[in-house]
C-alpha cells in the first residue's frame, strides 16, 4: 500500500457508514477499505489528484475507496476533482470486465459479445451512479464493500441478457462429429482449476482457456463450470450433488451438453494454438 495512505488511527476524518442492511445489520466495509478511505481523507487536494491519477493507483487506492469519494465528493465537490474520480472509477469498471484477447479469424461476433457485455456493465454502473446523486442507491453499498464481486454480478446479468439474443451466432456442432473423447480439453481445463500448479499454467495459456469457455453458449458454459468445480455428472449416492440434480435435466442432456462443449473447446483451442 502506498506510503501516503495512513491508518484510521491517525486520521481525524470520519468515514461515513453504509446504509444497506443485510439480516438487519448495516453493511460494513472491510477494515482495510475503511483505513484506506480514512487515509485518503487526510490528503491535500494536490496529493489526492496525484494519487488517483497515478498509473499504479489501483495498488494504493482500492476501487471500493475510490467509489466512496465518487459518491461523497471531497473538497466541496470541486468539479476538477470529481472529474478525476469519475474517469478513474470508469477505468476500474472497464478493467473489471475482462475482454479476453482472442486470435481466432472469422469469429468476430463472439468478440463483439464480450465488448457488448463490457458496454452494458459500464452503462448500468453509470446509471446507478447518476441515480445515486439524486437518491441514495443502496445497491452501490455492495460495491463499496466488494467492488469486483459487484461488477461480476453486473457481468453475469449482462451476459445472460446478451447471450439470449446472440444464440443464432453460436456455431453448430453435430453430435456425430463430437463423439470422440477430448483428453486435450480435459488437460487444458485442469490448468485453470485452483489445484493446478503445473508449468503449463502460465497466464497467456490460461487466458486462452478462459476465453474459450466464455465464448460457449450458456448451457454448455454451465456444465463446463460444474466440471471445473469437480461436480460429477450422474447420481452416485443420494447425498451427492451432481450436474443432473443441479441443472434439473436428464443425464443424457447433461452428457450431450458436455460433449458439445468439449468439441467446441477443442476446436477453439486448436484455432488459438494454430
Amino acid at each position: 500500500m502506498n506510503a501516503k495512505i495512513q491508518t484510521r488511527d491517525d486520521s481525524t476524518g470520519q468515514v461515513e457508514p453504509l446504509r444497506k442492511r443485510q439480516d438487519g445489520d448495516l453493511y460494513a466495509r472491510p477494515a482495510a477499505i475503511e483505513d484506506a478511505i480514512a487515509g485518503v481523507m487526510r490528503l491535500t487536494k494536490a496529493e489526492f489528484i496525484h494519487l488517483i491519477e497515478a498509473e499504479d493507483s489501483a495498488d494504493s487506492v482500492p476501487s471500493e475507496c475510490l467509489l466512496y469519494f465518487v459518491r461523497r465528493p471531497p473538497f466541496a465537490a470541486d468539479q476538477a476533482v470529481l472529474r478525476v474520480l469519475f474517469t478513474a472509477i470508469r477505468q476500474r469498471v472497464l478493467k473489471a470486465v475482462p475482454v479476453p484477447k482472442r486470435h481466432i479469424a472469422g469469429k468476430k461476433a463472439e468478440n463483439a459479445i464480450d465488448l457488448d457485455i463490457r458496454d452494458a456493465v459500464l452503462g448500468k454502473f453509470e446509471e446507478m451512479l447518476c441515480k445515486d446523486r439524486q437518491e441514495y442507491v443502496e445497491r452501490l453499498d455492495f460495491f463499496e464493500c466488494r467492488f469486483n464481486a459487484g461488477v461480476a454480478r453486473l457481468r453475469s446479468t449482462a451476459r445472460r441478457d446478451i447471450c439470449k439474443d446472440a444464440t443464432h451466432l453460436t456455431p453448430l456442432v453435430h453430435d456425430n462429429e463430437s463423439d470422440e473423447p477430448h483428453p486435450e480439453v480435459e488437460r487444458a481445463l485442469s490448468c485453470i482449476t485452483d489445484s493446478f500448479d503445473g508449468p503449463e499454467a502460465d497466464f497467456l495459456y490460461r487466458s486462452k482457456i478462459h476465453a474459450a469457455i466464455s465464448s460457449l453458449p450458456l448451457d454448455q458454459r454451465r456444465v463446463v463450470e460444474l466440471f471445473l468445480k469437480d461436480i460429477p455428472i450422474d447420481p452416485q449416492g443420494t447425498d451427492t450433488m451432481t450436474m443432473v440434480k443441479i441443472l434439473g435435466c436428464c443425464e443424457k442432456t447433461v452428457r450431450n451438453r458436455l460433449k458439445r462443449a468439449f468439441a467446441r473447446l477443442a476446436e477453439l483451442l486448436k484455432e488459438e494454438n494454430a
Binding site: 498509473e55 489501483a58 474517469t87 470508469r90 477505468q91 472497464l94 478493467k95 473489471a96 475482462p98 479476453p100 469486483n148 464481486a149 461488477v151 461480476a152 454480478r153 457481468r155 453475469s156 451476459r159 445472460r160 485453470i192 497466464f203 490460461r206 487466458s207 478462459h210 469457455i213 466464455s214 450458456l218 458454459r221 454451465r222 463450470e225 460444474l226 471445473l228 468445480k229 443441479i246 441443472l247 434439473g248
Partner: peptide, 28 residues
C-alpha cells in the same frame, strides 16, 4: 437460483484471473 449461481461462479472465476490484468488505460 442454480443457473444464476453457476453463471455468477463463472464470472467470479474470470474476475479472479483477469481483473487488473489489462495494463494502461482502456479506451472509454
Amino acid at each position: 437460483l442454480a443457473e444464476e449461481l453457476i453463471d455468477l461462479a463463472a464470472e467470479l472465476r474470470l474476475s479472479a484471473e483477469f481483473t487488473g490484468a489489462e495494463e494502461g488505460a482502456i479506451s472509454d
